[in-house]
Design a protein around this nucleic acid. Structure first.
Lengths: 146, 146
DNA sequence: CAAAATAACGCAATTAAGTTGCGTTTATTT
DNA sequence: AAATAAACGCAACTTAATTGCGTTATTTTG
């Protein structure tokens, strides 16, 4: 399988720099994250036409997360979403976006809301904070009309 | 089962005002939401010493949500949490808190972070927004030490 | 206030997300 | 190129959440 690379990025190199094995699947998976704001296991399975075992996908996502390539995105359904880390905002121990994310409760797509700014991280006594997310939910244009 | 009522509130009346049946369990469940910042099905089961069938709990939570008593709280694990609606901030179609919520990734407890203020809801073209949540995750004092 | 209608409840069975173990294959290290 | 380590696929498993249905409790109404 070959996925078009619109980003002029060397995904294999990015994986290597993060200490992640450069398998064909993982290179394509990283590419996919550069094309989609966020992904669930099911969405990844569909993108790879169910040719990749779901266990492989779960383990790749865990590996990407451990190595600081992606992070979880909270949502109020019970499906785990992952989103690419932004080097400007994420570090190994602290993940945030500077903007809100909208999750459609019908189609489950996520969208960046650039004019919703997240507050800065400030220490709170007794809490070890490692992620901050501003989450908006509802219905996107397509799903609201139907 | 009888749960102490620290709030001088008539839970049966609140249920009636929202069009929810006043069963013993639902009265006690509403009381519980006034005592805990947020609850999962499992936490409710434990609080009722597993005497209430889990299906009953699921259906009660769905009913409470539909009638605008509680709303879902996003988190990045895959467990659905519910939190009491605040009449100042929530309406039937729009749920928000004016402050952030911290979820411990170990014990799963939630805590209000009053000095993290949520941004105001502003309309975004093409999106029908019905909830806004500022979610912080990490480890609480107890879990960070262990 | 009693009968009819409606909704909640409990049980059993099912669906679906996510996890674990293990033998095999592929990538990385030396 | 050989040795080591990690990824992969399969099957089986765990757990959260859902559905159907007969029974019990609550609400409506006449």
């Amino acid at each position: 399988m070959k996925i078009k690379n619109d980003h002029n990025l060397d995904f294999a190199l990015i994986l290597a720099n993060h200490g992640v094995s450069k398998t064909k699947f993982r290179i394509n998976l990283l590419n996919l994250f550069y094309e989609k704001e966020s992904l669930t296991v099911k969405e990844v399975m569909n993108k790879f036409s169910n040719l990749i075992n779901k266990v492989t996908i779960y383990r790749a996502l865990v590996s990407f997360e451990e190595k600081g390539l992606i992070h979880k995105v909270p949502s109020s359904n019970n499906i785990i979403r992952y989103s690419l880390c932004n080097s400007d905002e994420c570090s190994a121990s602290l993940h945030k976006h500077n903007h809100g994310h909208f999750i459609c409760n019908n189609c489950n797509q996520t969208f960046c809301l650039e004019n919703y700014k997240s507050p800065d991280i400030k220490p709170v006594d007794g809490f070890y904070i490692n992620s901050l997310n501003l989450i908006l939910e509802g219905y996107c244009k397509d799903c609201h009309l139907n």
